[in-house]
Nucleic acid binder design. Structure first.
Lengths: 199, 199, 199, 199
DNA sequence: GATGAATGAGTTTTCATTCAT
DNA sequence: AATGAATGAAAACTCATTCAT
């Protein structure tokens, strides 16, 4: 497996740093090579082309992300708790790596349409976790039976993603994970007061 | 004279079409000029540079967007209704112009960081509408008094934006506005059943 | 005759100012038109093209130059005196019009080879004055009979031209005409002491 | 490998030829690259930009010029002889490289003001040689004690420069170095007969 | 005569990728 | 495996000139 060769990860980590610090369009292969401490040509022994670095970067980081998420998920037994964990964990993982947060929220979105489609494919694996939580919540009677899984998924992901992006754009100057509970509460109970009878 | 519309709008409309059909990075000035039916140089009589076309495009379209939104907003008198209108209108406006939807949801996001910051400035005017609705809802007692305006705003915008992007990525093959009511319901009451006592 | 139409001179004077203040390569036709207070298109009613403005500019100014030079030349009756007058007059005329000095010494030299050849043609009329002075000086026995007219001409013109250029490059901050006598003395008697026998 | 010379000199030599044969404004980087037998991009491994090629060209050639000049200067022991050498050598060096002569006398003068200022800086090193000769001549009593060093410098350089330029404009069709002695004689003794008493 | 909106040709530079060593 | 010198394709923008009014 490629991933075991040390230079592979060395280059990916270099890419994260270079992209975060210089921006997507200023992240030339030569800069990444220099940051990784290898020659330009060496990059191409480990990656097919530049796009492959970016996809691999996303794949590797997302893989670690999913792994950690799944690991902790085992400790929770209700969909409500799992959702709370998902949100908090999502925030913790991104606020724990400032470079990565910049790369995923701002820089990688500047990539070509084609690359973004591939990134979306990888993202699906992550969104599956959400789907499972929602489905479980419906089946367990925690969530309303009429809940549209796809919409709920877009709502959760759209909300956390927008929240992280706003945080990154504001130079990451406030604490992200502490927003998790409020967001969870809003997703579960909405903006209104508790008694639906008001309506 | 072929066109009575001033060339300014002619070029902006051409840019929307060219970007939607060719992608951001394949939208050369010469292509836009050709689509607009003017010479390359003419572009520069109306726009400072290529970036200026894109910013102007966003400004003009967003301006029309805000105007229409505010116009209809007058007919609604509760925050709940206004929110429902906002969501539906947002969907209607974007599903009513397929090219523009592709441009705003996919292509313009590939722009340089600097350009995206300018776009965000323009977007703030739009998000202000949301803020006003939320504040009004809290003051009128429709929304819970503990509602964090910023979070609620991110939640609404994150949700509708993610929903539209997913729709565009799926080649706009289903009806977007009909999702509005479900989303509104979820935002107001959350995923759970009505009785908070369960919790 | 074109030259009598007021706009012709208006445009030429505008060109001198614009070129002196902006440099040759930043002296666009539109800038000259604006400075002259006419529309861009109007330029082309009086001049064939941009190059024609520059040639005409040089022709007109050089014509005035030659006229004034010849006028005063009548008052001198020895070649030595005429040469002294030539040098002083050359300096006076150029130090009397700071814009023109910049244009002739620095900016017009940046023009295309072709234009410079045309300028050289016009310059010949001016250099003829020099030739006449030298020939007269030889015939009158004031200058050595072995004097090579062509070389002497190049020496005089090369010296005064280099002197003016240096003065312009030093921002015209010292008095140019007061150098005339020293230069004249050097041209007539050279660097050495008076007694040729030393050699 | 065709050439053993480092590409740096290869490109500079190519630039001299291309500029001489096509003129300053028709000397595109691609033409220079082709003449040098390298790819366009290779130019930018050795030079920052096009202007850098031109400055480097002038620096290198002027450096060689100064070096040769200084070398031979050692063999002469009077200022008069040194001046004679300077003039002859200046003519020899330029008439020995027809392309270079065209470039320095005609083409490089069309460059932007900014570039010309840089060229002038480099030229100062050359003019220093002249200054030293003049100062030495005054101190040794060869030249008159009232001689203004700056004026004398402008006179010498103005004269030789104008002479070379005229020669280039006349398609280099006569022998330049053979003019050296006459010019030297004129600079030392002037246009007049030897006996200053005439005056 | 006068206007000025419109035209469109033309060139430097960057950077992902290759391949001889 | 590793290197890094060399490659070459690709696009925004300026400005002299025209011509319909």
């Amino acid at each position: 497996m490629k991933q075991k060769r040390p230079k592979y990860m060395q280059i990916i980590d270099a890419a994260v740093i270079v992209i975060a610090e210089n921006g997507y369009h200023q992240a030339q292969v030569s800069k990444i090579a220099k940051q990784a401490g290898v020659a330009d040509g060496t990059i191409y022994l480990y990656f097919k082309n530049k796009e492959d670095i970016l996809i691999s970067l996303f794949k590797v980081k997302m893989g670690q992300f999913i792994e950690q998420m799944n690991e902790e998920m085992k400790t929770k037994h209700s969909a409500t708790e799992k959702l709370a964990l998902f949100i908090r964990k999502h925030f913790e993982l991104l606020s724990g790596d400032r470079h990565l947060a910049i790369v995923t929220q701002l820089e990688l979105r500047q990539s070509h349409r084609e690359l973004r489609l591939k990134i979306n494919e990888i993202l699906k694996g992550y969104l599956t976790i959400l789907e499972d939580i929602i489905t479980e919540g419906i089946e367990a009677g925690e969530f309303k039976s009429t809940l549209d899984v796809r919409l709920a998924k877009q709502m959760i992901f759209g909300t956390v993603d927008e929240t992280v992006t706003t945080w990154v754009m504001n130079d990451q100057k406030y604490d992200l994970p502490q927003l998790a509970d409020s967001i969870h509460e809003l997703l579960i109970h909405g903006f209104s007061h508790g008694n639906k009878e008001e309506k």
